[in-house]
């Protein structure tokens, strides 16, 4: 796949990739953009190569997941070394009124809170299946885990999420 084809593929999946990047960064938009940018550059520079063993989307989601993990590790190290002497420059803060127009905002908020209480794996599988429309097998591939394990996370995560949403509704 040449550079132009890669770009075209990435661009067609851009929104999806951003959504997955958000999930990998615990819904932090600044981090998600940074991760996505690093992942794109890794793909376009040839540091991450698509070998055609899976679908392009599954592969690029895997790259994003690994990039997010790398960024988390670097952040952790940096915090360890420079925590007291570094300050975080925040991007533009999300203003609640900007999203007020969205009809399902409450629903989205409740889901965000509930997802926060799931384990990382459960959250990942459910995000990939319900948000991105992947199969559980594809989700397993993205997360680098076995299909059996993914199925377990899926079933348990779904049950727990349903309970959490029910509890919020009450």
């Amino acid at each position: 796949m040449n550079d132009a084809e890669l770009r075209a593929q990435l661009e067609s999946l851009h929104s999806e990739c951003f959504g997955w990047s958000l999930a990998c960064c615990r819904r932090d938009r600044d981090d998600a953009e940074e991760v996505l940018q690093m992942a794109y550059l890794a793909v376009l520079d040839g540091r991450a190569r698509f070998d055609g063993r899976s679908s392009f989307r599954t592969w690029v989601f895997g790259v994003i997941r690994l990039t997010a993990a790398t960024l988390r590790r670097r952040r952790w190290l940096r915090r360890l070394l420079l925590d007291r002497h570094a300050h975080r420059v925040h991007g533009p803060t999300e203003h609640p009124s900007l999203e007020a127009a969205v009809i399902d905002r409450d629903r989205a908020e409740r889901l965000r809170r509930a997802l926060d209480r799931l384990s990382e794996r459960q959250r990942g599988v459910l995000q990939l299946v319900f948000y991105h429309g992947l199969t559980v097998d594809e989700a397993a591939e993205v997360l680098g885990i076995g299909v059996g394990s993914a199925r377990t996370h899926y079933a348990r995560g779904k049950a727990r999420l349903a309970d959490l949403l029910d509890a919020e509704r009450r």
Partner: peptide
């Protein structure tokens, strides 16, 4: 649980709309 797959899908759909 009273929340089924379809409801979960609606929740995720809402989240998707807001985020994207």
């Amino acid at each position: 649980s009273g929340t089924n797959d379809e409801e979960l899908r609606q929740h995720f759909g809402a989240l998707r709309e807001v985020e994207l």
